[in-house]
């Protein structure tokens, strides 16, 4: 049994005339694997990540998703997080008035509580965050501020990785974590992600560009187009896409 199993997933925008975005998407992810999903803009990559995280703007019309054999689509948003699903947002929102530390701590303790674990002690929590933040170049000042408030694009992405490091998910979905990063920031973020690779953790790395995959080397590469996976291969597929672009798929579409 795979850790995450997506089978023939069909989904549309919620509402009477909502358009269909995912049109029969299937994917199996085992512990320890890193899967890259590449594809032109508008192919439904972010939609897939939102549906996995539980956003209710979409309606699943067919297919299934299971996590450790359990029906993921039946779970509440926060329950999915507690079971180990983590989405690093393409556009992380700013949450004024909720300090990053308060936010991280509420999230970690809520997850622990749901899993029947004890709350983390204050000193342990402070040490944990301090260690992880240092590696990502996140200052104490950023931690005291409201979540993502006044952060640059790159800082927001680093903050997402910090959250992931603190929450230690089973399946991390990184939605265009490379967008808006310069080469140095890309290195910092990639190192942060690589440090979290582990035999028990799977990652789905969504990206438009091959560049990120030089740093986070995937085990599998999938091409997504028009709501389904149209091609899968090893890491060399990313290089091929880099050379040829998505023209081939876009022509199909015409």
């Amino acid at each position: 049994m795979a850790l995450l199993e997506i089978d023939n997933l069909h989904a549309k925008i919620d509402g009477e005339h909502g358009k269909e975005i995912l049109k029969g998407l299937s994917l199996k992810v085992n512990p320890g694997e890193v899967h890259a999903i590449m594809g032109p803009n508008g192919s439904g990559k972010s939609t897939l990540s939102y549906i996995l995280a539980g956003k209710d703007d979409y309606e699943v019309t067919d297919g299934s998703v299971s996590l450790d054999g359990e029906d993921l689509l039946e779970m509440e948003i926060d329950e999915r997080a507690a079971k180990g699903v983590f989405l690093a947002f393409q556009y992380p929102v700013e949450v004024p008035g909720v300090a990053t530390m308060t936010f991280l701590r509420s999230a970690l303790n809520a997850q622990r509580k749901k899993r029947g674990e004890e709350e983390i002690s204050t000193p342990d929590f402070l040490r944990l965050v301090k260690d992880k933040a240092a590696g990502l170049g996140i200052s104490q000042d950023m931690l005291r501020r409201g979540v993502n408030v006044g952060f640059s694009g790159g800082e927001k992405k680093r903050a997402e990785i910090l959250q992931m490091a603190v929450l230690e998910p089973k399946v991390a979905i990184l939605d265009e974590t490379d967008s808006g990063l310069d080469i140095d920031a890309l290195k910092v973020v990639s190192e942060g992600v690589n440090a979290l690779r582990s035999p028990d953790r799977a990652m789905i790395v969504i990206t438009h560009y091959q560049r990120l995959l030089n740093h986070i080397v995937p085990d599998f590469v999938h091409v997504m187009h028009k709501g389904r996976i149209v091609r899968s291969g090893g890491k060399e597929l990313a290089l091929e896409l880099e050379a040829n672009g998505y023209a081939e798929y876009q022509q199909d579409a015409a």
């Binding site: 956003k55 997080a81 507690a82 949450v95 509420s106 999230a107 809520a110 997850q111 749901k114 959250q163």
Partner: peptide
Amino acid sequence: LLFYLRARGIPLTE
């Protein structure tokens, strides 16, 4: 904002 917080594991009322 609500979705962002819940996606990190924070229950709805909290």
